[in-house]
């Protein structure tokens, strides 16, 4: 039985409210909050980036697993805000964790689904007998052009999953749906991403998320009723709620993982933080459907079954506790933290 052996998460403590961003750009905060379903978003500190968020999330995962870091045989970091254009984040994380030098490593990029892609690779490597444990991280300090609609949700955070045998949540099945759909992109040397506006909805998010979920269910004979929880990628709160309804899930299935309302969209960390928040409360034998989405575009779907091992697993502090620990900043401090203005 192979699956999630441990997990950890990290959310920077700073938050900016939608009202504060709307004030600067002269927009109607009520309308934006109603449209996106996001109330505030997380903001990294001046000395935080994807590497530091990845290390903090991974350290929590290693500590909870109670394993020797040297037993980790692979480190994959999925992000679209790797600190370097060329030079891996994975080696920084591996070194900080004390993984040693005997490990496979790579940085992954597939917009918001690079973290789940790392989980699939680790799952396959454990299954193939190449490694004992693999570490998959999804972390981002998401970029958004000031004044762009993305700015209201582009947030920072990440989650780390250790994949191995004897798990707290078995990966029963995984399936991906992929197509060439240019809904969101960032060209080389450009500081901010561009997107196709409304095009990011139906042909991009919904087509891939629904197809991946249905593909997983058809191929591995699951029904909606087989799942106790569902977690979808959360670019805003509206999309995952609508995707859940299209698949026949109720608000109770997705409420626990819907972290986007309180922290925004942490890109590669988004669906994984939702999964971590869900595992925080899940009971043995409950089943979780996880469907990520990465622009460009693709979705990775997972059927996860929680095992008895979760009972003795340390789940404190929970993701929602971390969400509650916050310090608000205004727009000027936010710009400083995002290194958009310098002394």
């Amino acid at each position: 039985m192979i699956g999630i052996v441990s997990y950890g998460s990290y959310i920077p403590k700073f938050r900016i409210k939608v009202e504060e961003i709307a004030r600067v750009w002269g927009e109607d905060a009520k309308k934006i909050k109603g449209g996106l379903g996001v109330h505030e978003k997380s903001v990294p500190d001046v000395d935080e980036d994807t590497a530091t968020i990845g290390v903090e999330a991974a350290r929590e995962a290693v500590k909870r697993a109670g394993i020797d870091p040297e037993e980790i045989g692979a480190v994959f970091v999925g992000s679209e805000s790797h600190p370097y254009a060329v030079k891996p984040t994975a080696t920084i994380v591996g070194e900080a964790l004390g993984v040693g030098n005997d490990y496979y490593a790579a940085d992954l990029e597939f917009a918001c689904k690079a973290g789940t892609a790392g989980m699939q690779i680790c799952f396959s490597m454990v299954k193939a007998g190449m490694i004992k444990y693999g570490l998959a991280i999804g972390a981002d300090t998401s970029q958004a052009r000031p004044g762009d609609a993305l700015e209201y949700a582009a947030a920072a955070g990440g989650a780390a999953f250790i994949i191995g045998k004897d798990p707290i949540a078995e990966i029963e099945a995984t399936y991906s749906f992929t197509s060439d759909t240019p809904d969101f992109w960032r060209r080389d040397l450009q500081p901010y991403p561009s997107h196709g506006g409304r095009f990011t909805g139906q042909p991009a998010y919904f087509r891939h998320v629904i197809s991946a979920a249905r593909g997983l269910m058809e191929r591995y004979s699951y029904k909606t009723e087989d799942f106790d929880y569902a977690v979808f990628h959360m670019p805003n709160a509206k999309f995952p709620v609508r995707a859940a309804r299209m698949l026949g899930f109720s608000d109770e299935h997705i409420g626990q993982g819907l972290v986007v309302r309180a922290i925004g969209n942490a890109y590669s960390g988004s669906s994984l933080l939702g999964l971590a928040a869900t595992l925080d409360v899940a009971e043995p034998d409950e089943r979780v459907l996880l469907v990520s989405f990465g622009s460009g575009a693709g979705s990775d779907a997972f059927a996860l079954r929680v095992t008895d091992k979760i009972k003795e697993f340390e789940r404190e502090p929970k993701v929602w506790d971390k969400i509650e620990r916050k310090v608000y900043v205004d727009y000027a401090i936010y710009l400083k933290h995002r290194r958009k203005i310098k002394a």
């Binding site: 500190d45 000395d47 935080e48 980036d49 530091t52 290390v55 350290r59």
Partner: peptide, 11 residues
């Protein structure tokens, strides 16, 4: 006297 813990950050 305040309690502190280590954190991985940019220098």
């Amino acid at each position: 006297g305040m309690r502190v813990k280590k954190a991985f950050r940019r220098y």
